[in-house]
């Protein structure tokens, strides 16, 4: 039995991960915005085999609440073995280009809120010399592209923060895993035309569980995104800037 905290628990990927954790009989604590969905999810995970499921509502952009909410979670779980941070939105690039207010909000949601949560969690886990921190970043954070650079910049910030954190926590035995999903069929991407590169939340979830078990540093999911991004990152900037990606 492991003690697992999931933030942004009602996101499609997080929920799929939660179901796999529940099946293994783990103890779960869920943080997310929507109360109704949290309630249904908690019952569901219990029926699926979780040892216990508790939850609380969170507004990730209310940074001042983080410490209190995390302390409550740690108390209820009686420690943390694994934390998964999975909340996020997909901002409209066009709106952000014309309104910095929106950009700032999206940066809070997709970037700074994660940094705030990680600050508390990293210190706690470092003090215990134990645990796994898994955070959903994105392949979009690997290189800026005109179609998606606000989201990409926020996720890029998370990715670099995690690199540093991994380096810092190396000696304390805390695993830090950066998860970089490619295209995933979730409510966040309902308006996209789906093709062969798209994965289901279940596939991504099973990769995440395996990545945690194998103590991965950076997990591209599905795996082929590692190679796609390798190519994308290798294109010289003077060529890349002319592409319509």
């Amino acid at each position: 039995m492991k003690k697992i905290l999931i933030i942004g628990a009602t996101s499609a990927i997080a929920e799929a991960v939660a179901r796999l954790f529940a099946k293994q009989g783990n103890r779960l604590y869920l943080l997310a915005r929507n109360k109704e969905r949290l309630t249904a999810m908690a019952t569901d995970l219990t029926i699926r085999g979780a040892e216990a499921v508790n939850y609380a509502s969170i507004d990730v952009n209310n940074f001042y609440d983080h410490s209190l909410l995390l302390n409550e979670a740690i108390e209820k779980l009686d420690g943390i073995d694994i934390v998964l941070i999975a909340h996020g939105t997909l901002p409209s690039q066009k709106i952000c280009e014309n309104d910095f207010g929106t950009t700032l909000k999206e940066f809070n949601t997709n970037g700074l809120s994660t940094l705030s949560l990680l600050t508390h969690l990293a210190n706690y886990m470092e003090s215990k010399n134990h645990g796994t921190i898994a955070v959903i970043s994105s392949v979009a954070g690997d290189r800026g592209r005109q179609s998606n650079y606000i989201y990409g910049a926020a996720k890029g910030m998370v990715t670099i923060f995690l690199q540093g954190l991994r380096n810092r926590l190396q000696n304390s035995g805390v695993q830090v895993m950066t998860i970089k999903p490619g295209f995933v069929d979730t409510p966040m991407t309902v308006d996209f035309k789906k093709g062969l590169l798209w994965a289901s939340p279940d596939q991504v979830a099973s990769d995440i569980i395996k990545g945690i078990d194998k103590k991965c540093d950076t997990l591209y999911t599905p795996f082929f995104w590692r190679y796609i991004m390798l190519i994308i990152k290798a294109i010289p900037e003077n060529i890349f800037k002319k592409l319509s990606l």
Partner: peptide
């Protein structure tokens, strides 16, 4: 698609309530 939760299960008589 996302209304896919089990809500209760009675192990005595097999009554399953779900979304």
């Amino acid at each position: 698609q996302y209304l896919d939760h089990f809500l209760s299960f009675d192990t005595e008589n097999g009554l399953l309530r779900c979304r």
